[in-house]
Computed example of a mutant assay.
Amino acid sequence: MTAARHDHILAHLRAAGLGALADLGFRGLDNDVLDPVIVTNFHASRTHKLTPGQQDANRVLAVGRAPVEHGFAHLKNWRTLTKLRTDPARATRLLRALLVLTNLEVNR
């Protein structure tokens, strides 16, 4: 994704008063430290190890993102949205309903 696309997503989230749990692809794009809209994991490197608090924060974030990631994976495997030809607003509502039904089916 380009920086302009990230900025566009960030502006829409701020305008709606929403937030997002994102992967490391969004790291560094939200510079507002006091009121972050996009929450990402902490990044470790060979020279910079994570503190136990940062590891716990990464774990909590992963727990929050896992159901959504699994839901999208199931929708992709079932090829549910391949032939969808509708208004994007209707598609958003349909996708939300499908994710809820997918999570119910997987947890059953």
Results as ranks from 00 to 15, higher is better:
residue 1 M to I: 06
residue 1 M to Q: 01
residue 1 M to G: 04
residue 2 T to H: 06
residue 3 A to I: 11
residue 3 A to M: 05
residue 4 A to V: 11
residue 5 R to F: 06
residue 5 R to S: 07
residue 7 D to Y: 09
residue 8 H to L: 11
residue 8 H to W: 07
residue 10 L to T: 08
residue 10 L to V: 02
residue 11 A to I: 00
residue 11 A to E: 12
residue 13 L to G: 02
residue 14 R to G: 01
residue 14 R to P: 03
residue 16 A to E: 14
residue 17 G to I: 12
residue 20 A to P: 06
residue 21 L to K: 01
residue 21 L to C: 10
residue 21 L to N: 07
residue 22 A to N: 01
residue 23 D to T: 06
residue 23 D to N: 07
residue 25 G to Q: 05
residue 26 F to P: 00
residue 26 F to D: 04
residue 27 R to H: 15
residue 27 R to T: 09
residue 30 D to I: 08
residue 31 N to G: 14
residue 31 N to T: 14
residue 32 D to R: 04
residue 33 V to E: 15
residue 34 L to Y: 10
residue 34 L to F: 06
residue 34 L to W: 03
residue 35 D to H: 14
residue 36 P to D: 04
residue 37 V to L: 06
residue 38 I to S: 03
residue 38 I to P: 01
residue 39 V to L: 13
residue 39 V to I: 15
residue 39 V to P: 03
residue 39 V to M: 05
residue 40 T to V: 15
residue 41 N to W: 00
residue 41 N to Q: 10
residue 43 H to T: 09
residue 43 H to W: 11
residue 43 H to F: 11
residue 44 A to W: 01
residue 45 S to D: 05
residue 46 R to P: 03
residue 46 R to F: 05
residue 47 T to G: 01
residue 47 T to Y: 04
residue 48 H to S: 05
residue 50 L to A: 05
residue 51 T to Y: 01
residue 54 Q to S: 07
residue 55 Q to P: 00
residue 55 Q to C: 10
residue 56 D to P: 00
residue 56 D to Q: 14
residue 56 D to A: 15
residue 56 D to H: 09
residue 57 A to F: 14
residue 57 A to D: 12
residue 58 N to L: 07
residue 59 R to F: 08
residue 59 R to H: 13
residue 59 R to I: 00
residue 60 V to T: 13
residue 61 L to I: 10
residue 61 L to H: 15
residue 62 A to E: 02
residue 62 A to F: 01
residue 63 V to T: 14
residue 63 V to A: 15
residue 65 R to Y: 10
residue 65 R to N: 09
residue 66 A to I: 07
residue 66 A to Q: 13
residue 66 A to Y: 12
residue 66 A to G: 00
residue 67 P to I: 06
residue 68 V to P: 05
residue 68 V to K: 04
residue 70 H to L: 10
residue 70 H to G: 01
residue 70 H to Y: 06
residue 73 A to D: 06
residue 74 H to Q: 13
residue 74 H to N: 02
residue 75 L to I: 08
residue 75 L to E: 04
residue 76 K to A: 07
residue 77 N to P: 00
residue 77 N to Q: 15
residue 78 W to L: 15
residue 79 R to A: 13
residue 79 R to S: 10
residue 79 R to C: 09
residue 80 T to A: 14
residue 80 T to H: 10
residue 80 T to M: 09
residue 81 L to T: 15
residue 82 T to G: 02
residue 82 T to H: 12
residue 83 K to R: 15
residue 83 K to L: 08
residue 84 L to A: 13
residue 85 R to G: 00
residue 85 R to N: 12
residue 85 R to C: 11
residue 86 T to R: 07
residue 86 T to W: 08
residue 87 D to M: 04
residue 88 P to T: 02
residue 88 P to W: 09
residue 89 A to K: 14
residue 89 A to M: 05
residue 89 A to E: 08
residue 90 R to I: 07
residue 91 A to L: 10
residue 91 A to M: 12
residue 91 A to G: 03
residue 92 T to F: 09
residue 94 L to V: 02
residue 96 R to Q: 12
residue 97 A to D: 03
residue 97 A to E: 04
residue 98 L to E: 00
residue 98 L to Y: 12
residue 98 L to C: 14
residue 98 L to G: 01
residue 99 L to T: 03
residue 100 V to T: 11
residue 104 L to P: 04
residue 104 L to A: 13
residue 104 L to W: 14
residue 105 E to A: 14
residue 108 R to V: 08
